[in-house]
Design a protein around this nucleic acid. Structure first.
Lengths: 198, 198
DNA sequence: GTCTATAAGCTGATAGAC
DNA sequence: GTCTATCAGCTTATAGAC
């Protein structure tokens, strides 16, 4: 028992992710990661060849999951309103599944993009934008969404509001992500203005 | 001419702010700052006693400006809808006036909060929240804003959407901040849903 | 006000014993 | 798979000449 391969490896990634998220990748040292795991810093290099590799695994598994869920949303043949809602739900589910990776991505993309090995992050960001734009533009085309604001601006405003929730929203039984998803959808679709019920 | 005191000092702060914003505070070295200014790193210490002091001046002047503009918005005796709009405009004007400081604050607050000297950032964040909540709650009380979503959640969603625009919005003659402010206000107040004109 | 020179400590990473 | 021991390089910061 307790002999599965890579258990230690996963523990290291978990410690690293939490530290990277809290203090930033550049400010987190391999010694701090090792301390958190309970080994010496040199021993980390039996499992990973560099600190960058740890970040890479954390962030790329997050992006892989995200792309998978976004594909499912795109495949749905439903109204724009419902599809935007599902896109928000998918995003928040990824936030819940990868809170540290989400925070690392939000805070440190610029830093990571300095290194060649993280060039793929540019494409990932572009793909995410394409999914949102597809949903928004379909909504405009079908007449559900307003056409008087640039879809790209709508995308960026909603994207930042949704993703940055990782910094403050802690899901609980009382307040699950589905509840936040409803609030987001409701605010973005219907606005803050008080309106008589239909 | 060109003998005003502190010209060099300001040039150093400008270089530092740009580098801190682009690569993060922790990942920016005093040598890079000095290189950018065109002097040697040791010479920086004639003007500042530490790297932290540079960050401190950049961020605190940003917050000072922000607090001043927010006070003016709070003092307005107008409808909630207009006041929320003015709050968004005030925020975007501060973004425009202090783009680097805004980005540093957005990306590196967590990192800075590790140091005792940046404890004041906690209060600053709380004050900002109070201003937004005052405006939102006044709107609910007067019946203009919907009461079915927690004001704190509304605040956080709008805050992140507005402030993170520093990462992608570059004001131009064709697209000034007033234009972005209209788009934000319009999205938040009226929503994405297409509606017949009144 | 900038330079030269350098300190003292921390950084990521490696080699080899156990 | 972890430890011991260590390296080379970089970090912030300082002291004193110019």
């Amino acid at each position: 028992m307790a002999r599965e391969p890579g258990v230690r490896r996963e523990a290291i990634l978990a410690s690293a992710a939490a530290l990277f998220a809290r203090k930033g990748v550049a400010a987190t040292t391999v010694r701090q990661i090792a301390d958190d795991v309970g080994i010496l810093s040199g021993s980390l290099y039996h499992h990973f060849d560099s600190k960058e590799t740890m970040v890479d695994e954390i962030v790329s598994s997050f992006l892989k999951d995200l792309q998978h869920r976004y594909e499912q949303v795109l495949a749905e043949e439903i109204g724009a309103r419902q599809r935007l809602h599902d896109l928000i739900v998918a995003s928040l589910e990824v936030v819940e599944a990868h809170p540290h990776a989400t925070e690392i991505y939000q805070n440190d993309v610029n830093f990571l993009l300095q290194f060649d090995r993280f060039d793929y992050l540019r494409n990932a960001g572009r793909q995410v934008q394409n999914v949102w734009l597809t949903v928004i533009e379909a909504g405009i085309a079908e007449g559900t969404f307003r056409a008087d604001v640039d879809p790209k601006i709508l995308y960026r405003l909603m994207r930042d509001a949704v993703w940055l929730s990782v910094r403050w929203f802690k899901p609980s039984a009382d307040h699950p992500i589905s509840s936040l998803a409803e609030d987001c959808t409701s605010l973005f679709l219907d606005g803050l203005t008080s309106r008589p019920k239909d």
